[in-house]
Design a protein around this nucleic acid. Structure first.
Length: 837
DNA sequence: TAATTCGCTAGACCGA
DNA sequence: TCGGTCTAGCGAA
């Protein structure tokens, strides 16, 4: 590999000799961190991929690998009761390894403390090679040493320890001859993607033949789009010459062109490139005896949990589909199916036509409709690029917080974001991180769930003038205000016992814990950012960065409680998580009590929000009440007015023992906007016609208080259904297939529909979003379920849709207005009932 | 395997 | 034909 490194001279201890040549200083954009094994020296060496240039440089700014051969892979050993020096002696005396013998490179005393122990001076044990570390961790464990942080990948270790921010600027001092890093520090300058980063998106179209395997059929078209979205290219071969299409000789040449284009980029963007495009082009290149290398190396398809990920060397692969999945998980977007057409429409408001594989085949073979295909192929790249551009600032901020590469942050779970941040800050606080739990511990944790939030049963019916109050970031603010952290739990100081949770655990008041320290910093920073954002004009580049920064903080803050209660977390703490929810329940109960004292009627509460009936009270009264509560709250806890609503409805439960349904209600604000919560309308597993009917009924009832109009509307929908003319699109029920079809115990409609489709040759795997219709053909509901695509228009069971979809969706609302099911089906009279008198 | 618990509801199945 | 129990999915916070 990099021959530059071998120019170093070593002294007898294998350490590098003082630099004689001059040291250069440069600013650059850090893209990737990794390592390689230098066999000659028997060392694992850190390498960083950096784009040189003060402001990231122009298009062809030089990008280079830099090396840090001083930084050693390491973990920590607890010295136990014996002192650190003795442990060090023992460790240094060890001869390790099976075939190839090796010794520890260095063992040194630190001032770090192991988690949950009083013993300080954990010993840092370094190795020449990562492979030595891997062997040693087992051997040392067997010898009875307690070891920590032994499973942190080397590149990640480097970023965390040096507190670098990938996809951010760094200042480097290095030897120009060897690119050896003498010093590297993060730089605060803001990265502006359009100016500082070169990104290119690409997308492949492949021939749809008999074989389905990756790489089995040829690539027939490929597109690329840059960040400005204007320089789009579409390349094909052996087909008609049309506008916007570049023709080359062969498939191999198409691959060459993509390779050439992509090698200009710092970031390569795809839509589902993790599972498809990179793997495909790699396989095709292999078949054709061609090369496909990015930055000199073939893409690697690695496993990330249950998913694949296409990893490049140095250059960062951003899969926009992974970005969308992350946004979906964190609740930032709500899109039924994350295909590129849906995303284009829902995120950017741009309709994108779907083209089917067979159309593509035909267009390519005989030129029919080829222009459409060219446009379709290019749009795929453009949309992928748009997503990346839109959300890159968010992930760059997350990278800054967690010191992880963009490749990792765009594919991370929120738990790993929290954990990476804690790993980074733990050493600062003088702690070695705790280890991940073993499977036994994980199971034990799962079997002991933590009691969660309190939800009050609401007052049923229609209500007017509602004030909604909210605790701002309830769980994080409890953590900070009560200093909740695994290491502050049940401390020895007598006076700290006053900081006792309703759960009986108490938390130290003398020393700030890791969680409150880190989260407190984030809360303060977020308030500052939000204030600054408010002052900036919307739409500008700066505003976008500010918004993304506070958003990144919000994501991490909101995940902190979940992390403490997450069975696989290093810093899992049942006591902490339990204390947080106990305090939260207490605060909401206190709010209810005090609201009663202040003569408000409490309509409903859930976790952190309180609904008050204002009756004759004014907004001023509500605000005074909030102020009073805030005076009594500790630390940075704060109750806020979320909003005022003119009308609202709560309904009884449909099943079981009755009672009023929690987590379902509809509100109308002062401007007449509806807020529908928990009802079928917001659920994807109900058909459109039921959802739309429900929304219309809620709208009519809350706006006009006119129940007879609503009843008429329902009757009309029933009539339409009976006529058999409702399009199947309105009848489709959408559900995700969460496991393999054979592994279900219960026979359910979506599983049954999936099985039938599979029998007809459709490819359906775990995670597929199924859209099915209940047809006329069969006995049970499951028997009658068929995937939408196989159902002919008009073939639907009207009775099912009336009885099991539309009526259930509206009946509980209509009942509040005095209607029965029969009234709606048979047109019972009930006229002119005006709810609002 | 990939943050948590609380809560609602459907549909299959079983026994009376 | 009913009510209870079970599995399953999804939303609220």
């Amino acid at each position: 590999m990099p021959k530059a490194v071998s120019e170093h001279k070593k002294n007898s201890k294998g350490e590098k000799e003082p630099v004689k040549g001059k040291v250069e200083m440069k600013k650059g954009l850090l893209l990737d961190a990794s390592y390689f094994d230098d066999e000659e020296k028997g060392k694992s060496i850190i390498k960083l991929f950096i784009k040189i240039g003060k402001k990231g440089g122009k298009k062809n700014a030089p990008r280079r690998w830099f090396f840090d051969s001083e930084f050693r892979p390491h973990f920590f050993v607890l010295s136990g009761k014996a002192n650190a020096e003795k442990t060090i002696k023992e460790l240094e005396g060890l001869e390790l390894g099976d075939e190839e013998k090796f010794r520890i490179f260095r063992a040194e005393k630190t001032s770090l403390r192991a988690w949950g122990r009083n013993e300080t001076n954990a010993v840092k044990v370094s190795f020449d090679k990562v492979s030595h570390l891997v062997q040693a961790r087992k051997l040392l464990k067997d010898l009875g040493f307690e070891i920590f942080e032994y499973d942190v990948p080397f590149g990640k270790r480097y970023l965390l320890d040096k507190r670098l921010n990938p996809c951010g600027f760094v200042d480097i001092e290095f030897e120009p001859a060897s690119n050896e890093i003498k010093k590297i520090t993060p730089s605060n300058e803001i990265v502006e993607p359009m100016r500082d980063i070169e990104a290119i998106a690409f997308d492949l179209e492949t021939y749809c033949g008999k074989k389905f395997a990756i790489g089995a059929e040829p690539i027939i078209m490929a597109s690329m789009a840059d960040m400005r979205e204007e320089l789009g290219r579409v390349i094909s071969y052996k087909t008609k010459k049309v506008k916007g299409l570049e023709l080359v000789e062969s498939e191999e040449k198409v691959i060459n062109e993509i390779e050439k284009g992509l090698n200009e980029a710092d970031l390569i963007v795809t839509y589902n490139g993790d599972n498809f495009d990179f793997h495909y082009v790699k396989e095709r290149a292999k078949k054709l005896g061609a090369e496909f290398k990015i930055n000199g190396v073939e893409p690697r398809i690695i496993r990330k949990g249950l998913d694949n990920a296409a990893k490049l060397s140095g250059v960062q692969h951003i899969d926009s589909y992974q970005i969308m999945r992350f946004l979906q998980r964190t609740g930032a977007i709500h899109i039924v199916k994350l295909d590129i057409e849906n995303v284009s429409e829902k995120v950017f408001g741009e309709k994108k036509e779907k083209v089917y594989p067979l159309e593509l085949n035909e267009a390519w073979e005989n030129g029919k409709g080829l222009e459409r295909m060219v446009d379709y192929n290019l749009k795929d790249s453009i949309v992928a690029m748009k997503i990346a551009k839109e959300y890159l600032p968010l992930f760059m901020e997350i990278s800054k917080l967690t010191s992880q590469t963009l490749f990792d942050t765009t594919r991370s779970a929120t738990s790993s974001m929290v954990e990476d941040l804690l790993m980074k800050e733990a050493h600062h606080k003088g702690f070695v991180a705790p280890n991940k739990p073993n499977e036994f511990e994980v199971r034990e944790r799962i079997e002991n769930p933590i009691k969660g939030a309190f939800v009050k049963e609401p007052l049923v019916g229609l209500h007017e003038n509602i004030a909604v109050l909210d605790f701002a970031s309830l769980y994080p603010s409890i953590i900070v205000s009560h200093n909740i952290s695994p290491e502050t739990l049940n401390c020895e100081h007598e006076e700290c016992k006053k900081n006792v949770s309703p759960d009986g655990t108490w938390f130290c008041k003398k020393e700030k814990g890791l969680f409150p320290e880190v989260l407190g910093g984030l809360v303060t920073e977020r308030i500052k950012l939000k204030r600054e954002y408010g002052r900036k004009k919307a739409g500008g580049e700066e505003a976008k960065v500010l918004f993304s920064s506070q958003w990144a903080l919000k994501i991490v803050l909101n995940s902190a409680y979940g992390y403490l209660a997450y069975p696989r977390a290093r810093w899992y703490s049942r006591e902490c998580a339990s204390a947080i929810t106990a305090w939260a329940r207490n605060y909401i109960h206190e709010t209810i009590r005090k609201a009663g004292e202040a003569d408000f009627e409490v309509l409903y509460t859930d976790t952190d929000s309180t609904f008050l009936l204002m009756k004759r009270k004014t907004k001023r009264d509500v605000e005074e009440f909030v102020e009073k509560i805030n005076k009594e709250l500790p630390g940075n806890m704060e109750l806020e007015v979320d909003g005022y609503y003119r009308r609202g409805i709560f309904v009884t439960r449909r099943k079981k023992e009755g009672g009023v349904a929690k987590k379902r209600y509809a509100l109308m604000d002062e401007k007449g906007n509806l807020k529908i919560v928990g009802f079928e309308y917001v659920r994807r597993d109900w058909c459109n016609i039921a959802k739309e009917t429900q929304r219309t009924v809620i709208d009519m009832v809350l706006h006009e208080g006119d129940s007879s109009k609503a009843a008429d509307y329902v009757r009309k929908v029933i009539k339409d259904l009976k006529s058999g003319k409702v399009p199947k699109k309105e009848l489709a029920i959408i559900t995700m297939l969460k496991r393999k079809v054979d592994s279900y115990d219960a026979k359910e409609p979506h599983v049954s529909a999936a099985k039938k489709a599979i029998a007809q040759g459709t490819e359906i795997e775990v995670g597929t979003i199924l859209s099915y219709v209940i047809t006329k053909n069969g006995k049970s509901i499951s028997d009658r379920a068929e995937l939408e695509e196989f159902v002919e228009e008009g073939n639907y069971d009207a009775d099912y849709y009336i009885q099991n979809q539309v009526l259930p969706a509206v009946i509980k609302i209509m009942e509040e207005l005095g209607y029965s099911k029969e009234d709606l089906i048979h047109g019972g009279k009930q006229t002119g009932l005006n709810t609002w008198g």
